[in-house]
Amino acid sequence: MAKEGEKTPFWLYVIEDPMLLLFMGVTIYAVFYLLWGVMELSNLPPIPEDLKKSILGR
């Protein structure tokens, strides 16, 4: 807790607020792990045509 009469320091405010912590935890994880991962997986390229041609010979 902050000292009497002083403004609560920013980091103290952050670490004391359960809902803010929950929000940070969920957001960072959802964006950097889930969303980024899903986007990479859904944007995989197909096997290049010229590679297929060179193997299949047509």
Binding site: L44, P45, I47, K52, L56
Partner: peptide, 16 residues
């Protein structure tokens, strides 16, 4: 990584 499917990969494999 390339996206593929069983049919396509088998064809490439067989040709190889």
């Amino acid at each position: 990584t390339y996206k593929t499917n069983v049919h396509e990969f088998n064809a490439l494999y067989d040709a190889f």
